[in-house]
Simulated assay, not measured.
Amino acid sequence: MTTHPTKLARLSSAASLAERRDALVAECALQRLALDVQTRQLLEPLTGGKLRHTLATRFKVPLMIGGGIVGLLLVRPRRFVPLLLAGASLLKHANTALPLIRTVLQRVGKRTPPPVERQPP
């Protein structure tokens, strides 16, 4: 059903006023249901459980790493600082070497021969 004036004019000649009213009430109910569904979809990311789950999955690993670093700093500060510096140096060298390794592997991967197709007996 529709609430457009020209379409309602056609209905008034063909149906009684009670039928028109019932059609409009049914259409309004459908519109209210659609509005309710759309409102829930808009507010869904703001619910507590969803927000808590999103933050927990994004910050779990960085918080674990940070907690481990703080724990090691508190327990063994003399041994951990040189280890941290060595790790940072290794990370720096790995960041410069990884693009080179990736390029070499891609070039090697392109030269593989195509698979031999077997014909059915």
Rank of each mutant, 00 (worst) to 15 (best):
residue 71 G to W: 09
residue 81 V to F: 12
residue 3 T to Q: 07
residue 29 A to F: 03
residue 111 R to Y: 08
residue 108 V to S: 06
residue 20 R to S: 01
residue 2 T to P: 00
residue 69 I to G: 03
residue 5 P to A: 01
residue 67 G to H: 03
residue 31 Q to P: 02
residue 106 Q to K: 05
residue 12 S to C: 10
residue 19 E to M: 02
residue 21 R to E: 11
residue 47 T to I: 02
residue 41 Q to K: 12
residue 94 A to K: 13
residue 5 P to R: 02
residue 90 L to V: 12
residue 97 A to L: 15
residue 51 L to H: 13
residue 108 V to Y: 09
residue 13 S to E: 09
residue 74 L to C: 07
residue 116 V to L: 13
residue 69 I to V: 10
residue 41 Q to H: 12
residue 107 R to D: 12
residue 46 L to Q: 08
residue 40 R to M: 01
residue 52 R to T: 13
residue 101 I to S: 07
residue 83 L to N: 07
residue 113 P to D: 01
residue 57 T to A: 14
residue 94 A to F: 15
residue 96 T to Q: 15
residue 55 L to N: 00
residue 11 L to C: 04
residue 75 V to K: 12
residue 103 T to D: 12
residue 25 V to L: 07
residue 12 S to D: 08
residue 16 S to Y: 03
residue 39 T to Q: 02
residue 28 C to Y: 15
residue 79 R to M: 08
residue 11 L to T: 01
residue 60 K to M: 05
residue 63 L to K: 02
residue 79 R to A: 11
residue 19 E to A: 04
residue 107 R to C: 06
residue 120 P to K: 12
residue 14 A to Y: 05
residue 41 Q to E: 10
residue 51 L to E: 13
residue 71 G to Q: 07
residue 96 T to C: 11
residue 88 A to Y: 12
residue 80 F to W: 05
residue 84 L to S: 01
residue 68 G to A: 15
residue 73 L to C: 06
residue 19 E to V: 12
residue 114 P to A: 10
residue 4 H to M: 08
residue 35 L to G: 08
residue 10 R to V: 11
residue 73 L to S: 01
residue 9 A to S: 04
residue 63 L to M: 04
residue 119 Q to G: 10
residue 84 L to A: 10
residue 86 A to P: 03
residue 1 M to N: 03
residue 7 K to P: 00
residue 41 Q to I: 05
residue 52 R to M: 15
residue 42 L to D: 11
residue 7 K to W: 14
residue 43 L to H: 08
residue 52 R to V: 15
residue 73 L to V: 02
residue 93 H to A: 15
residue 23 A to H: 00
residue 55 L to Q: 04
residue 87 G to R: 11
residue 42 L to Y: 14
residue 8 L to F: 04
residue 97 A to R: 11
residue 24 L to T: 00
residue 116 V to Q: 09
residue 102 R to N: 05
residue 109 G to V: 07
residue 16 S to A: 10
residue 121 P to V: 00
residue 84 L to H: 03
residue 56 A to L: 06
residue 64 M to Q: 13
residue 102 R to E: 06
residue 71 G to R: 09
residue 102 R to I: 13
residue 100 L to R: 13
residue 40 R to A: 09
residue 116 V to R: 10
residue 107 R to E: 11
residue 41 Q to T: 00
residue 34 A to N: 07
residue 76 R to L: 03
residue 9 A to E: 07
residue 50 K to I: 15
residue 2 T to N: 08
residue 23 A to K: 05
residue 51 L to C: 10
residue 58 R to M: 08
residue 104 V to P: 03
residue 113 P to V: 00
residue 80 F to L: 05
residue 89 S to K: 14
residue 105 L to D: 02
residue 113 P to F: 00
residue 33 L to W: 06
residue 75 V to M: 02
residue 25 V to N: 09
residue 47 T to Q: 03
residue 118 R to P: 01
residue 102 R to D: 07
residue 92 K to P: 00
residue 9 A to R: 03
residue 63 L to S: 02
residue 117 E to S: 13
residue 41 Q to C: 09
residue 64 M to I: 09
residue 71 G to C: 03
residue 53 H to C: 07
residue 53 H to Y: 15
residue 6 T to P: 01
residue 74 L to P: 00
residue 114 P to V: 04
residue 100 L to C: 10
residue 75 V to I: 14
